[in-house]
Design a protein around this nucleic acid. Structure first.
Ligand SMILES: [Zn+2]
Ligand SMILES: [Zn+2]
Ligand SMILES: [Zn+2]
Ligand SMILES: [Zn+2]
Lengths: 133, 133
DNA sequence: AACACTATGTAATAATATAACATATATTAG
DNA sequence: CTAATATATGTTATATTATTACATAGTGTT
């Protein structure tokens, strides 16, 4: 078997925060998350950041670096928690995870001028989404 | 002539801050920049951020989004202020701007599943640099 | 001179993220 | 099972990154 998926059982805080992000239609910022989960007993920024760190680490969510925001992974079976690509609408800020075999293959095989390959990358495309065009 | 380069005459603050970043061997963070230019009369964060915004806008520097840091553009004639790619060493944090015709062509021509093209992108590769391998 | 535009100066504050320390819960080894 | 270890949580304080708001100054155009 080529890829074995370790099942990560989420802890309570991780589950609460993942559920919130997962059902959100847009990327969520840490303090928006905090505000939303306070009714569930998560009171401090650090509790949020710790859960976010872990969720990113195991690939359940991704951080949109240019926006300091987080979205759930929608690459179904995301073996590529470390090879991410997104399109970002510069008007409505809609973010979509790009799942392109061609793109990931190209980038995974890309060699810099020293012949160096990189297995980990993050790519953010910017433009206008369908609605905003 | 294909690309006409408007010469941007930098203002005083812009020049001070660009010079500092340009001579730095590593990406600089905004408050490190602030600290360094205080002797030159730039006293407030906003003065730094305004200069940074402008310098990014005209392509003299780039922001490394995953690090909240800034480096001078070294794509010599950077027509691609909006199409940037970097390699980042996860140990020593060395950042290098990637200048690859193949890569930029591939990305500029990349179409998502809706057939959408993106003229603007930012790509960050992560790995270990020569020294850290 | 009048106007528009860009840049600067300054103070206050907002938004994002981490350090430090105490406690609790889960996992593993003996 | 129990002790040891690792992971997760709770809490307070603080560090880091970035923007709002408003006043002033310079630059170029008509
Ligand atoms: Zn994903
Ligand atoms: Zn849009
Ligand atoms: Zn460049
Ligand atoms: Zn290195």
């Amino acid at each position: 078997m080529k890829t074995m998926h370790k099942e990560h059982t989420l802890t309570k805080n991780q589950q609460i925060i993942f559920d919130l992000i997962d059902k959100s239609s847009e990327p969520m910022k840490a303090y928006a998350i905090l505000f939303n989960v306070q009714k569930k007993g998560i009171k401090a920024p650090l509790q949020v950041y710790r859960a976010l760190d872990k969720l990113v680490e195991i690939g359940k969510i991704h951080k949109i670096e240019s926006r300091n925001a987080f979205i759930a992974c929608h690459n179904s079976s995301c073996q590529v928690a470390k090879a991410t690509a997104f399109s970002i609408c510069e008007i409505c800020e809609k973010v979509t995870e790009i799942s392109s075999a061609g793109l990931s293959k190209y980038l995974a095989n890309f060699k810099d001028k020293d012949g160096m390959k990189y297995s980990k990358y993050n790519l953010e495309f910017f433009g206008l989404c369908k609605k905003c065009r």
